[in-house]
């Protein structure tokens, strides 16, 4: 589904990603972990098409197409979703209006009929209730005055509405208490399916108790230094990120 090959990315001349390789098969959940500044959020931003990143080398293909060549809205319509680390407040536009525009843009792109106001509302209610949010939230301006937890749940709601093929969750767990974390994880788990994949970017192992990944990758200084299964996350939790730089990187450099 997603192939990242030797991806080198810089921001304003500063190298952030130094050769990322990542293969995501349909139906799998990949966790990308790593210390602050390792390039996790850059990877998420580049996949979603945020401005300001220089692709110096490498490629990203999504279902056989060049993802980097697509505008952000085309990526979304093709089925890529980014749950923002810091969801943006947009005063003056209600979540309802926003999501209806979004879902119909996506449906149109996929050759599906647009949803009427009634159909949209029915779907929105279905998707919002399991997240512990009231349908009233739809009438509020996008993320305006939302608590941190509400913003993250709103991201999951949007994901549930748009039904992406590939969802990238950028530190969706950061700042959540355990109850909110469970709600978010349940939201993600309920969307897991044989043809939908997730890239879960997180700083903490805690989330992975609830969203159990098929693969765990450790990003350090712009490279994936180590990949493994869910047990790698547990090891990181007990040993911290320090040993990656102390042991794994020198070994790799020595060709061990």
């Amino acid at each position: 589904m997603l192939q990242v090959r030797n991806l080198h990315v810089s921001i304003e001349g500063q190298k952030i990603l130094r050769g990322i390789d990542l293969d995501v098969q349909p139906g799998t959940v990949h966790a990308v972990m790593g210390p602050n500044g390792s390039g996790k959020s850059t990877l998420a931003s580049v996949l979603a098409g945020r401005d300001g990143y220089e692709i110096e080398e490498g490629s990203v293909t999504f279902e056989g197409q060049d993802l980097l060549d697509m505008d952000p809205e085309i990526r979304a319509r093709e089925g890529v979703f980014l749950a923002f680390q810091y969801p943006v407040e947009v005063p003056g536009v209600t979540t309802m209006y926003f999501m209806r525009e979004a879902i119909n843009a996506v449906r149109k792109h996929r050759g599906q009929a647009e949803l009427s106001a009634g159909e949209f509302l029915k779907l929105a209610r279905e998707k919002i209730n399991p997240l512990g949010m009231e349908a009233d939230m739809l009438k509020r301006a996008i993320n305006e005055g939302f608590s941190g937890g509400e913003k993250k749940r709103s991201e999951i709601f949007q994901m549930a509405m748009l039904e992406p093929k590939l969802a990238v969750l950028d530190e969706t767990d950061s700042g959540l208490d355990i109850d909110a974390l469970k709600i978010v994880a349940d939201g993600v788990n309920s969307l897991r399916s044989a043809d939908r994949s997730f890239v879960v970017i997180t700083h903490y192992q805690r989330l992975l108790n609830y969203i159990v990944p098929d693969y765990v990758h450790v990003l350090s200084d712009g490279r994936i230094e180590l990949s493994g299964d869910k047990n790698l996350a547990l090891e990181l939790e007990s040993r911290g990120y320090g040993w990656i730089n102390d042991e794994v990187v020198p070994q790799a450099a020595a060709g061990v």
Partner: peptide, 21 residues
């Protein structure tokens, strides 16, 4: 970018934000 990342076209996003303003 937030609006675009949900599938809303660049022009439409601009108009929505203008309207919001």
């Amino acid at each position: 970018f937030y609006l675009q990342s949900r599938g809303i076209g660049a022009d439409r996003a601009r108009n929505l934000l203008t309207y919001a303003f």
